[in-house]
Design a protein around this nucleic acid. Structure first.
Lengths: 207, 207
DNA sequence: GTCTATATGACGATAGAC
DNA sequence: GTCTATCGTCATATAGAC
């Protein structure tokens, strides 16, 4: 196998293991074995376990998956936003996010492990990626507040409440309620309910 | 030091370290050193690292801290519930939970680490403790739906949305946004806003 | 109840052959 | 590009003295 191809394969294997067991719970021997190579090969491509992990998180946060925000490649959100279709904005945003979480459980686990284990790369991810989401949704909320459609609440609180519903729901499914004994609903229904609750919750009330 | 006292001290020390670095990130040597004893002492009290961890999670989930639900020792929630003061119920519940999370960061971290690392004790905690919360809040929500004050949404979705706001908010503060750069508000304000959003969000609308 | 010393193996990482 | 062999260190756990 070529160097680049092998490197990618080791990265992917390492990703699966790190996301499952965390940094200190994964050994270089495990990685080598799963990748079907010797440990020496791993250290030919990455000078240390730390470097391997760093390259991994870097690749996964910057190049793939979560480089795309839930509104990119999601025409529905942008269209709804231009039309000031509030339900469309929040529903499609939530649905995209929930689907993404479900498809990329390994990534979610890796980010949580990084955060718990205190790798500063997790910090950077949150300051950029999550910060950007606060700006994006917060901006729309501000507009709708000026339109006197949403109540005057700190937009960041609304974003936090809304993201909280989605992320907590995904986290429940990934970490604890894998069999969905507590609440087993399709993402469409969850997105619809979350969007309805938040929208009615922040709407200006008549009278 | 007496055996029991020493045992407790080792447990507490281990708790601090495990919650900070996770199971595989913590060594028995670290624990011994932090407790100010030799490693041999640790193994006199606990036959293995696994047993120590098990005893720890058991003690922390069953005997202390989270044995108490957010409505126990919280007269405000029960009083509000009897008076059908919806805002009182949700506000005081949220405030209690947020304060608890903030006071017991170590416990929160330990539970998340356990869940990620797949210790089945975390599962048990969630099925009992969290399940009980769903019953408690869900029961109240059902009552208010019969009163035609809350809309007909699956009560578990409402509980999930509400818990999501709180837990996500606490998790943000604990894991990523420790400096609170994104959103720095007192628990009272967060609880008030979350309660208002969820209540208005699920209220029966006029017309 | 507490320690020092040590057994046994795992872990991260390297050397050097092919 | 890949391997086997190995090194030094650290980890869990035990033995036995005080």
């Amino acid at each position: 196998m070529s160097g680049d191809k092998r490197r990618e394969q080791i990265l992917q294997t390492a990703f699966d293991l790190f996301s499952h067991r965390g940094f200190s719970g994964t050994t270089t021997k495990d990685i080598a074995k799963s990748a079907g190579v010797s440990e020496a090969m791993v250290f030919k491509h990455f000078s240390s376990k730390d470097e391997l992990y760093g390259a991994l998180v870097e690749a996964k946060t910057c190049n793939e998956g979560f480089r795309k925000y839930p509104w990119e490649e999601n025409e529905a959100v942008m269209t709804a936003m231009e039309a000031k279709d509030d339900f469309g904005v929040f529903y499609h945003f939530a649905l995209k996010a929930l689907n993404k979480h479900q498809e990329d459980i390994a990534f979610m686990r890796m980010i949580f492990f990084s955060a718990l284990e205190g790798h500063e790369i997790a910090d950077r991810f949150f300051q950029t990626f999550v910060g950007e989401i606060y700006n994006f949704l917060g901006g729309y909320i501000k507009t709708r507040q000026k339109d006197k459609v949403f109540r005057k609440i700190d937009p960041r609180i609304i974003v936090r409440a809304f993201l909280g519903m989605m992320i907590h729901h995904s986290l429940n499914n990934i970490l604890w309620d894998k069999k969905r004994t507590l609440l087993d609903i399709p993402n469409e229904e969850a997105a619809k309910n979350f969007a309805e609750i938040i929208l009615q919750g922040v709407a200006v009330q008549e009278g």
